[in-house]
Design a protein around this nucleic acid. Structure first.
Length: 825
RNA sequence: GCGGGUGUGGUGAAAUUGGUAGACACGCAGGAUUUAGGAUCCUGUGCUUCGGCGUGUGGGUUCGAGUCCCUCCACCCGCACCA
């Protein structure tokens, strides 16, 4: 192709090797006088090659990184791979390859694609979480939590994925009860597992979301608040009649305690089986049958709120602490074992679920809040529980009080009597981090013959994964590591007696919960992260990634950050100051998927249109948080724009350093208006508008070159240089080539935007509109400093015809832009 | 049901504090150049019965509303037997 034609292949081939050898975006350690920004894109999982979703996130993250450089900041923009995890292992099983080989081959492929995509990463800081140099510090982190009592083992009902044969954290189970990884229906299993005590941080994780308001998407904040699910209320202790046992229940409505007519215990709770053990055989048999029935149900069935309620009487009674009333204890699966205490006081008059149950099993309904209503509203008749406010009745000392006062009064009574207290409960559960799989970080604990847990001494870290040779990786419900005899059997660090390593590996979300700290000193083999580097760079100024991590990764990273803060390693306790969630790339209105066969391939798009055109398309398609339908955007259009900008640079004939102040003022104004606006636009993520403004600028320059001041005017050069800089955020190859065509040395990405000249931002004339009754009738060219009187006068003159026979009521004058004449007939 | 969000041309979308709705593109139409063009350049393009009408619906505040307030509708997302 002709050298005077824009050829993206030639331009890519020209600059990629230069960036590769010169590494303009690497950030050396040590001081730098410039202010700094830490821009981070969520690192990828290396399954296959990059896809269009990656193309979007890394295009948008790079706009922000490159923008801050152009603003004179030192920018850290690292990349790595989240490279532990199940797909490697599943591929290994399916194809008989080594999970390590599979992983690192995929990383090599993705890395090549990423380099081709020309995001301005600091390639000197690459990390892979599956490298021993990384996961050593994962183990260190685990032991830090363990020392603080924040990592512990317990026997509990857990989510079990029957396909991947491993446990899952609550966060990894989708709302329909299936695994987010394998799609299998998750079942409950009772197992001893490692947990991180994230519930200790529930309050702070919730409260600190307020500080992220405006800087994180509202949606993510809401999702996290929902997930943590704090509810305030009271704990009320009921005694079991004829026994020493007491049962605490959590309620948000302690004010309705006088209306409690029965108690319900979760069938799968220890409490239920303990209570029923004391009952007579018929009751016990009924319970056992019921429990069996309940456990057969899938999570989806169980969560169906419209399902008819079922339950069995447990043959025992509880004593209501405020009135001494004896109420029957039932077991029903609408009460969850793992929320609150697994038992509730049932107030059928004021809780729909309790009412449904009471009506079915003919239990009494007692109204204790007189909710005013025009219609009859006795729950026993209308079958609708009343939840509104009103004076309390049948409630002893609470009679006459309204809800808020009654709640406070009841809490006071309970606390005085020692039968309860104000309490807060969370939906959030502790984070289950054990996984019965191979390709993860080994948990650095040794189990002594006496059952003691012994942390692996720091000088013995990392606990390396054993070789896969001879190891059966197929899922079988226990970790494959347990079968690696040489690995699992170790001397007890205390006395050398036989002991065994913990054979489970960690949830890979542990790996990603702190990786942003490791990027600051990725080669430091003496500590997880360099505290000084952390002080300089962290927290992350701008995080970019998909909304699919709204809860999982982001909640865990916030938690670990707070733990490290408490341990004194960090001086901040929120990891990501600002968050941008990009939308998805879809096709014809549907999510791309292999099964539907509607995939746009990353590599093919780059082959056909070039890296720059794909990146520009990603940014120009619309607001970044919206989905991009690849069928509705024009990559060709992006390519045409890039080529047009490139030709513009090629046409410039003035010399480098030409004095712009002698150039055409009109064009200069346009250029400087762009410079004045670009910051606000990028910082509010309006990348599409920035590109529109660049297009506008290029169109103006084109006109000036062809039929205006001509290619030699210094203002043309100035505009072309600004376009080259601005375009470098989106189309780095074309921009670098333009910079070079304009006679400069590399690299355009290391330039600084000129400061907009305030004198050029003032227009000589402004178009003022003249409205009659709010409708635009005329437009006038006026001076920007026109007086109110003069503008008014000119406006009236301009529309005098239309004012014939009308009475002017009032005239609103807003110089220099608008006059509104209010008239009547 | 609860919470969050979004409704603007044929399409993707713009629109500081209420002040010219539809920037910039895609698409389409026409023209120039050309052997040809899916290249390049130029022009036009919300609807219209040419009076006007137009930002999901209906109301309100205001000299003036895409923007603020209320009502309703539609769609998307999250949560949901959480006591």
């Amino acid at each position: 192709m002709d050298e005077n034609e824009y050829d993206f292949r030639r331009v890519e081939a020209k600059w990629a090797p230069v960036w590769e050898s010169e590494r303009p975006f690497d950030v050396p350690d040590g001081d730098d006088p410039r202010p700094h920004k830490y821009i981070l894109d969520m690192f990828p999982y290396p399954s296959g090659d990059l896809h269009m979703g990656h193309a979007e996130v890394y295009a948008l993250g790079d706009v922000l990184a490159r923008y801050w450089r152009l603003r004179g900041y030192q920018v850290l923009h690292p990349i790595g791979w989240d490279s532990f995890g199940l797909p490697a292992e599943n591929a290994a099983i399916k194809r008989g390859v080594n999970p390590r080989d599979w992983t690192y081959e995929n990383i090599a492929q993705q890395r090549a694609s990423m380099k081709r995509y020309a995001a301005s990463f600091d390639w000197s800081r690459v990390l892979h979480t599956s490298d021993p140099e990384y996961y050593k510090w994962n183990q260190w982190l685990f032991l830090e939590l363990y020392k603080k009592g924040l990592a512990y083992r317990k026997d509990s009902w857990v989510n079990w994925d029957p396909v991947d044969q491993t446990v899952l954290a609550n966060e990894q189970v989708l709302p329909d009860g299936t695994s987010e990884r394998s799609g299998a229906t998750v079942v409950k299993k009772k197992l001893t597992q490692w947990y991180f005590r994230i519930t200790d941080y529930a309050d702070r994780l919730l409260a600190d979301l307020d500080r992220l308001e405006g800087a994180w998407p509202a949606k993510v904040l809401t999702m996290q608040r929902n997930w943590i699910g704090r509810s305030r209320g009271a704990e009320v202790v009921f005694a079991v009649d004829g026994s020493d046992r007491t049962v605490p229940v959590f309620t948000t409505r302690p004010d309705t305690l006088y209306g409690a007519t029965f108690m319900v215990v979760a069938p799968d709770s220890d409490l239920a089986s303990e209570l029923v053990a004391e009952a007579d055989p018929a009751v016990r048999m009924a319970f056992v049958a019921y429990l069996e029935e309940v456990q057969k149900k899938t999570e989806i069935e169980r969560q169906d709120a419209t399902r008819e309620k079922t339950g069995v009487f447990l043959g025992c009674f509880a004593i209501n602490p405020v009135n001494g009333e004896r109420v029957p204890i039932w077991s029903a699966d609408y009460v969850l074992a793992d929320y609150g205490s697994g038992a509730i006081m049932a107030v059928p008059a004021h809780d729909q679920r309790d009412l449904d149950f009471a009506l079915k099993y003919d239990l009494p309904v007692r109204v204790v809040v007189d909710v005013p209503s025009d219609e009859p509203n006795d729950p026993a008749v209308t079958l609708v529980a009343t939840t509104g406010d009103g004076p309390h009745i049948n409630s002893g000392p609470l009679d006459g009080l309204r809800k808020a006062d009654a709640i406070a009064a009841m809490v006071e009574v309970l606390e005085k009597d020692g039968t309860g207290k104000g309490a807060t409960t969370y939906r959030l559960r502790d984070w289950l981090i054990s996984r019965q799989r191979f390709w993860g970080t080994p948990i650095p604990i040794i189990h002594g013959a006496d059952g003691e847990e012994i942390p692996v001494p720091a000088d013995q870290l990392p606990v390396l994964l054993p070789p896969t040779e001879g190891l059966d990786l197929r899922p079988k419900g226990s970790s494959p590591l347990g079968a690696a005899d040489d690995w699992v059997n170790v001397p007890d660090p205390r006395d050398g007696s036989p002991a065994k390593r913990d054979a489970d590996t960690m949830d890979t979300f542990v790996d990603s919960s702190w990786y942003f700290l490791r990027f600051l000193s990725p080669r430091d083999d003496t500590r997880a992260f360099d505290v000084e580097a952390v002080k300089k760079w962290a927290p992350v100024d701008q995080y970019v990634g998909g909304v699919e991590h709204a809860i999982l990764h982001l909640l865990y990273a916030r938690f670990i950050t707070k733990v490290l803060f408490d341990l004194g390693y960090l001086d901040f306790d929120e990891p990501f100051t600002a968050l941008l969630n990009q939308g998805m790339v879809i096709l014809d209105g549907a999510k791309m998927s292999k099964s539907k066969g509607n995939i746009v391939f990353f590599g093919e798009e780059l082959d056909n249109f070039g890296v720059d055109a794909v990146r520009v398309t990603m940014a120009f398609a619309g607001p970044p948080e919206d989905d991009i339908d690849w069928a509705e955007v024009s990559v060709t259009g992006s390519h045409k724009f890039i080529a047009r900008a490139w030709r513009m640079a090629q046409d410039v004939t003035s010399d480098v350093g030409a004095d712009a102040s002698t150039g055409a003022a009109g064009l200069r104004r346009f250029t400087h208006k762009f410079l004045a606006d670009v910051g606000g636009l990028v910082e509010s993520y309006k990348f599409n508008v920035v590109i529109a403004r660049l297009m506008d600028l290029v169109n103006h320059v084109r006109k000036e070159i062809d039929s205006g001041v001509g290619p030699a005017d210094p203002a043309v050069r100035e505009a072309a240089e600004v376009v080259s800089m601005g375009l470098s955020m989106f189309a780095p190859h074309a921009a670098e080539d333009m910079w070079s065509l304009l006679g400069h040395e590399p690299f355009v990405g290391l330039q600084e935007f000129p400061v907009a000249d305030a004198r050029l931002l003032v227009e000589d004339t402004i178009v003022a509109v003249v409205q009659i009754n709010g409708k635009v009738k005329e437009r006038l060219d006026v001076s920007p400093d026109i007086s109110e009187a003069e503008l008014s006068e000119r406006a009236l003159a301009a529309v005098s015809g239309a004012l014939q026979g009308k009475t002017i009521r009032t005239t609103i004058v807003r110089p220099p832009k608008l006059v509104n004449i209010v008239v009547a007939d």
